[in-house]
Design a protein around this nucleic acid. Sequence first.
DNA 1: GATGTCCCGGTAGCATCGCTACCGTGTTCA
DNA 2: TGAACACGGTAGCGATGCTACCGGGACATC
Lengths: 298, 298
Amino acid sequence: MFSVDRLRALSAVAAYGSIARAARALHVTPSGVSQQLAKLERESGHRLLEPDGRSVRLTHAGRVLTEHADRVLGQLAAAETDLADLHEEILGPLRLGGVGSALRTLLPGALADLTRDHPRLAPAVRDGEAVDMLPLLLAGDLDLLVIESWSNRPMALPAGVAFEALVRERVHVALAAEHPLAERESVDLAELADEPWAGCAPGTEPREALVQAVRARGGEPRLRYTVAEYTTQLALVEAGLTAALVPAMAQRPAPPGVRFVDCAPGLEREVLAAWRGNSRSPVIRAALTALRRRVPPV
Amino acid sequence: MFSVDRLRALSAVAAYGSIARAARALHVTPSGVSQQLAKLERESGHRLLEPDGRSVRLTHAGRVLTEHADRVLGQLAAAETDLADLHEEILGPLRLGGVGSALRTLLPGALADLTRDHPRLAPAVRDGEAVDMLPLLLAGDLDLLVIESWSNRPMALPAGVAFEALVRERVHVALAAEHPLAERESVDLAELADEPWAGCAPGTEPREALVQAVRARGGEPRLRYTVAEYTTQLALVEAGLTAALVPAMAQRPAPPGVRFVDCAPGLEREVLAAWRGNSRSPVIRAALTALRRRVPPV
DNA sequence: GATGTCCCGGTAGCATCGCTACCGTGTTCA
DNA sequence: TGAACACGGTAGCGATGCTACCGGGACATC
């Protein structure tokens, strides 16, 4: 693989038109440049320069290599400016992981703010479940997670993971307006033991929280509808087909034929941002700020 | 500017996840890699690695620099493959210069053939006049010229320039069908001394050849129409407005109301390819082959 | 046509740089 | 609690690149 110093010598000769002028520009002797180019020719297996009067001229191979050399040098210069700017500016990769509902509600706006305020920041997002993404966070493959934690099933965060609650909100039972319990102040989940339920995908926090909440009141939920989007769940509720457990943030827009009823025991959901405790870098801080700004007023 | 060896060490640590594994991959001792990274940290002014158990993990700055490092290394690898392939394959820049009429007639098809047969060839074209482009050719700023030479004004090529005639063709006087001389076998340019003429732009070979040819027969041409495209000149001729001198290649499509008459003294035009005599490289040879294939049958 | 100037290319010698070998420290696992 | 592993530092050796110097060829001037 070619040495950068040699490529720089070649690039300088191409730019200045002679070994002597290139040597002056590089603050070395012409002999040094000449030696570098001779080695470059041996390495590449091509003549790179040919005599032209008492000066030299690039051969075709020389031009091919010069183009690559200039790109390499440009990339190195870009690396230098990036690292120099990194002292003041927020830039570089930001690898986010998010669970479905947080992805849909918080992330798009926050990312829009972030890339507007920090154009050289390059966010990447992957979705998944907290149990899968926490190891990735710890391994350094993700920088920041946005996950959720239900009060009847608090998310266990491993040591070394710091977190901040972005939202803490009540969870209500969504019932069709004509449901016999729809006008009650509060319902016990035990009263809904025979109800069909709509829930998110198996393995997700909202789904497991729903199952555990009903079981805790002695029932076994019949999960007839598995639907990721709360909006769709509410449409099923409005049609009188099912009940659903819906956090406050996801209750808008509320279809007219749906009522939200407190449940006993009381349930809450938190949306958490989590990061490695020892890496509260400027990038993480900027992302947290953007997320907080996008938390909807409850 | 960062050393490539150090960037390679960083990239390997990022790829293999620890200094020890990176050192095995690079066939050096862990101490060597560790030293390189320490220097890289001093140069960049950032921590690039942070302890993670008994291994290390990239910091944000480390990730930023790793992205640049991978691009630099990729570019270097691309340079190596290009130079290696250059022994068998036609690739790299091909800087062509052409005068107007040659550009329009020969170059487009030839370039299409070239880039089809040699996808990694990167042709660039500039147009201009031979007098301007020949110094560029000699200086090494152009690789191949396509120019023209009229028999009454042969192009003087400087020493060191090799050439090949791609086309050698008769030049005829184009007259409107109803012109009194239109049905003659041949006309002397002296007979057309009072005719208005259409010619190419001042300074171009066809224009100067026309002026010199008429002057050689004792006339002074009145150049009323200055038009680069022969097709347009022929339209003016057909309209009965002017006469024109048109080489055979440019006589098609011939408008029905135009006649082509031999002129005395006989005129010919050559289209020449010219290159530096000491650089008959595979690229030049491939370009010449493509040009020859695109010469229209006369 | 002779001379001076400029530029490229080669060689000897010196300084710098990176590598290995080795040791100490901290972390993880049995 | 001890063994294994991994990172970080230091001393010494080998490789690399540089300078200084010389020779040969091309161009300009007289």
